Deep mutational scan, measured.
Amino acid sequence: LSCHYCHSLFSGKPEVLDWQDQVFQFCCRDCCEDFKRLR
């Protein structure tokens, strides 16, 4: 899998964000929080 925010590859459990009828996967909570802050 690749992170939607930083595009790094990861194999662990992703942080998942269901936002505006789309599902995004992130490598860590920090990337998820940064993505939400920018949107």
Rank of each mutant, 00 (worst) to 15 (best):
W19L: 15
V23K: 14
F24L: 13
D18Y: 06
Y5E: 07
S8D: 11
H7T: 12
K13S: 07
F10N: 03
D21I: 05
L1C: 09
D21G: 06
H4C: 14
K13G: 05
C3D: 00
D34Q: 06
E33P: 01
S2K: 15
H7F: 13
C6F: 00
H7Y: 12
C3M: 02
E33M: 12
S8G: 14
E15Q: 06
C28S: 08
D30I: 04
C32S: 04
Q20E: 15
Q20W: 09
C3H: 00
F26M: 12
E33N: 08
W19G: 12
Q20K: 15
E15D: 05
F24R: 10
C3W: 00
F10R: 02
G12I: 03
L38W: 14
K36N: 04
V23P: 11
D34C: 10
D21H: 05
F26Y: 03
Q22K: 07
L17W: 06
P14R: 02
H7L: 11
H4S: 14
R39S: 15
C27G: 02
F10S: 03
Q25G: 11
H4W: 11
S11W: 02
K36V: 09
R37Q: 14
C32E: 04
R29H: 14
K36S: 08
D18P: 14
C31S: 00
C32P: 02
H4A: 14
D18G: 06
V16D: 01
L9N: 06
C27W: 00
Q25C: 07
Q25M: 13
F35E: 05
R37W: 07
L17I: 09
K13D: 10
K36I: 03
C27M: 02
V23A: 10
E15Y: 07
C6Y: 01
C31H: 14
F35H: 04
D18W: 07
Y5V: 12
V16S: 09
P14N: 05
R39M: 10
H4Y: 12
P14F: 03
S8K: 15
V16K: 06
C32M: 13
C28Q: 11
V16N: 08
R37A: 10
G12L: 04
D30Y: 05
V16H: 08
K13Y: 03
V16F: 04
K36M: 14
D18A: 09
Y5H: 07
D18N: 12
R37K: 03
Q25L: 05
C27P: 02
E33S: 04
E33R: 05
V23F: 11
D34G: 10
Q20R: 13
Q22I: 07
Q22M: 15
C3P: 00
Q25H: 12
S11V: 03
C6M: 03
S2Y: 15
V23Q: 14
Q25I: 06
C28G: 11
W19R: 13
R29W: 08
E15K: 02
C31W: 00
E33Y: 05
C32L: 08
Q25S: 10
D34V: 07
L17P: 04
E15L: 09
L17N: 02
F24S: 03
V23W: 12
S2E: 13
V23E: 14
L9E: 08
L17R: 03
F35M: 07
D21L: 05
K36W: 05
V16I: 06
F26C: 02
K13V: 05
R39L: 04
C28E: 04
C27H: 02
C32W: 03
F35G: 03
Q20F: 13
G12E: 10
G12T: 10
S8P: 00
S2R: 12
R29L: 09
F24G: 06
R37S: 12
E33W: 04
F24Y: 05
F10E: 01
R29C: 11
D34W: 06
L38Y: 08
C31Q: 01
F35V: 02
S8N: 15
D18T: 11
V16W: 04
F35S: 03
R37P: 06
K36F: 06
C28H: 07
E15A: 07
F35R: 01
H4N: 14
